[in-house]
Design a binder for these strands. Sequence first.
DNA 1: AAATGTCACAACCGCCGCCAA
DNA 2: GTTGGCGGCGGTTGTGACATT
Length: 334
Amino acid sequence: MGRAPCCDKNNGLKKGPWTPEEDLLLINYIQKHGPGNWRNLPKNAGLQRCGKSCRLRWTNYLRPDIKRGRFSFEEEETIIQLHSLLGNKWSAIAARLPGRTDNEIKNYWNTHIKKRLLKMGIDPVTHRPRLDLLDLSSFLNSSLFNSTNPNFLNYLGLQSQVNSELLKLATTLLASNPQNQELYNSQTLHENTLYNPQMQNQIQQFQIPALENPSCQKQVLQPNMEQLLGNIACQNSQGNLELPCNSLDEFFPLPTNVNSNEAMYNSPESSDLEALLSNNKSFDSVSSTPISSTTPLHSSPTLVNGGKEDETATFCSDFLKYQFPELLDINEFV
DNA sequence: AAATGTCACAACCGCCGCCAA
DNA sequence: GTTGGCGGCGGTTGTGACATT
């Protein structure tokens, strides 16, 4: 079934960057009449634009509740965590980041976060560490690493060359990979958890009450989240872990004024991330990092985008932190 | 100083789902 | 049940600014 294009390409409608005069026309019209009926809006507003162009200009740029400026660490952390849950559902992610548009988040992901994840050896699609980049697996699969002697590195004089934290991390990661499961049985994993109080604490924080309403719409989890949300997810008939739909809202509650019209005329004030985070212990437990916890949410935005700083060094997502118990510098290891 | 490369982001394009006729 | 309009979404492109050679 074909559809007539929203905008006839040969009807003389203007394309390209918007001028301040056009912006003013659009703003004035929407302030008087409100948004809606985008097809007729340009004609009524005196604009030589198609309705879709007007809608995009309004929703992505002119809306009064849009938060301009750089993304804070907290926002970046939220984006990464939500992306690991939702994938490229930019509008769904934007709905949980007051003042940010899906387009902005999408651009920021593609130009900043994705590159940083790759740089750190993290697959931006699956959010899984890419040990292939680090070439750790061959080492960890070796008989050397399989030694049960905790001092084997000492024996071989390797301790000074190998970051022990990274080794612990790699151990955990490999254990989470079914291909390496035989290397690390459940006892080993349990010991690792006990060994790491921080991880133990975070796991406890995820012990939320059993989710009810099994008939609700479910969302298939990305593989890496199995570990993170193992306590609340359940298996579907295909054996995939699923997250009941209401649990996403428990971790990332939607702002109260998600209605576009309400959001448009009622700029969010305290309904920001601080409220989101403070209202949710479970999420808070995962989102607090040494870096973010020392940075007030309403302090001046940390230089995240736009700067030319070493992005690997400044980057620290909480999701990553869950799997990276300490702030690790991959460069130290490689 | 000029040429070239890279980055950031606004805007566009095409498809999809919903809904009314 | 079918068709077509509309709003929305995600992927992609165009282009100006900035950095590097």
